[in-house]
Write a protein that binds this DNA or RNA. Structure first.
Lengths: 334, 334
DNA sequence: CTGTTAGCGCATTCAG
DNA sequence: CTGAATGCGCTAACAG
């Protein structure tokens, strides 16, 4: 692999001039610029990124930290972040952080402070005070998606409101016996957003004086999770709810499939509403609260670049839009 | 942020000694080692990764190049790669390559040759001759998953065999009218593996003298894709197949859901077999050809590290295991 | 076992 | 407009 010195000598100029010509910064006569360019691609020259980083202090790389979950939300968000970064010529380093592991410690203590990135996006992570201190010490900006962290810009939907609106939709249709699927799992893992959604469900019920009917059945936020939970819930035909709120669309879809298998018609005998507007929601005619994780990814990058370009720019907290999408999985109870 | 010089002077030693103490390479007395360590964490010292890379020539980073598809296979594979890399203290840079875009060019011409990585894993990518030349020119090892590339180690299942076995399973049960769902899409995109699977289907039919019955219906390799395609296929009750091979489990599951909606019982009236053993396969009692993309991710990293540690190590081509998993979506035709 | 001396490859002063 | 010199932070000989 050739270095800038090779290019310079081949073009008959100094390294400094070659550097200026290649980067486009500083004055270079059109003629020598051309010579340098020609030499560069004759040699298939590519700057050594570590050398550039060391000299400039910037890496053209953004770190993305998220739980290693292959849930739709994360996949979409990742795609959004990638799209935006691509357009800006930034690279992406991805870190999947198993909950409370040594990995996590190593990440915050060593990797992130190693100046491998110009900025960091943390998704669904709630850093501890010490972790935050480590991050800020690097002087690089942090953007969080989901849980908000001190000293960072942030973007997220209002999960509480989303679940509340979903539940209210059911209440307005006349439902009183509304169950929540996905409230808690056996393992006790309940991600930040999920917890807020549960709160929103309870809040709506309380406001309507329906507290007594609250029923939360634990389920993983997945289709099989929702399926299993709903199958149990709907098994007893005498005591089954008239409507279900899924913690997310995956769980809600699982519930719909369970209902169908049990011969329970949706929406005539059972209404189901989800949260997310998953790409499969349409196929199941699922009424849901729509959000766009992909857009949130774009927004996160926007917030990040804003502070990478201008470190003293004020922190921003943007609330991503979400709204009720009515399809045909909900109807008045009969 | 402090540098190794700060640590050295605080510990009263030279930079070299500090470096040795910190990295564990070379002789250092236990006593000074301790002093250096103490100084280091008093200062919360973390080595600057670019400086280390420049000096050593290694980045402790692996590049992962894959299509920006959030299909189960890729998500699982990514998880596997991450797990393995984590254990080895390697970082991961992720590149989603839109098919035939400028991005792709930039990636191969600039990013990958920029020595940002110690090795590269390419998934479902078929590099052109020029692209391959660029890669090899860097002298860093390449491992491909899926399509094999000249000069790289590779891991993949035998997609042709997988589809053949799936189809044979149906033939052995007595089916003659077997359709393939997901053969081609309107956009003409047919990823490498999918193409092979289609071949395997045709091969099995041919071997059984069933060519004439071949029916391929185009569908995206997704649940809605399979749903839509199957709905069309099964709509005509007079002329419908007795069995379906899905290009992947997502498509197969979509077909099952379509069948249920149409009141067609699986497996008594229709057999369905998929390929992958997707995490949802169990929920739908789907008979399928199992493979583990996660394991393939581990394997890819193993192949890569082998050649990163020993550049002259021979190239390897490993065939990942796959085998028939019989559940209850298949039965003899009635 | 430890310190000194040289780079790694690039961008960036500062003169000219 | 261009070249020579300097340094980014670290590791790797090479002496001692």
């Amino acid at each position: 692999m050739s270095t800038i010195a090779d290019v310079a000598s081949r073009a008959g100029v100094s390294k400094a001039t070659a550097s200026r010509a290649l980067s486009g910064r500083g004055y270079v006569s059109e003629k020598t610029r051309r010579r340098v360019m020609d030499a560069a691609d004759a040699l298939a020259y590519v700057a050594h990124s570590s050398a550039t980083s060391l000299a400039t202090g910037r890496t053209q790389t953004v770190g993305l930290v998220m739980p290693p979950i292959d849930r739709w939300f994360f996949a979409e968000l990742l795609a959004g972040v990638q799209e935006s970064l691509l357009a800006l010529d930034y690279d992406l380093s991805l870190y999947g952080v198993p909950e409370g592991s040594q990995t996590r410690e190593r990440l915050f203590e060593t990797v992130l402070p190693g100046r491998r990135f110009d900025g960091i996006i943390a998704v669904g992570i709630q850093p501890s005070a010490r972790e935050l201190e480590r991050l800020h010490r690097t002087g690089r900006p942090l953007v969080s998606v989901g849980p908000y962290s001190e000293g960072s810009s942030a973007v997220s939907i209002d999960d509480t409101a989303a679940a509340r609106i979903a539940t209210e939709h059911l209440i307005e249709l006349g439902h009183a016996d509304i169950a929540f699927v996905g409230g808690s799992t056996d393992t006790g893992e309940l991600s930040y957003g999920d917890e807020q959604r549960l709160d929103g469900y309870h809040g709506a019920l309380r406001a309507a004086g329906l507290d007594a009917h609250a029923r939360v059945v634990g389920a993983a936020p997945t289709m099989p999770g929702g399926y299993t939970a709903a199958a149990g819930l709907l098994g007893d035909r005498r005591n089954r709810p008239t409507a279900i709120v899924g913690v997310c669309d995956e769980a809600a879809i699982g519930a719909i499939i369970a209902a169908r298998r049990l011969g329970i018609a949706v929406p005539t005998e059972l209404s189901v509403v989800g949260i997310d507007d998953h790409e499969h929601a349409d196929m199941f005619a699922l009424t849901t609260i729509g959000q766009s994780p992909r857009e949130q990814g774009h927004e996160a990058v926007r917030l990040l670049t804003r502070r990478m370009d201008e470190p003293e720019a004020p922190l921003e907290r943007v609330s991503a839009p979400s709204s009720l999408v009515v399809r045909s999985s909900t109807a008045p109870p009969r």
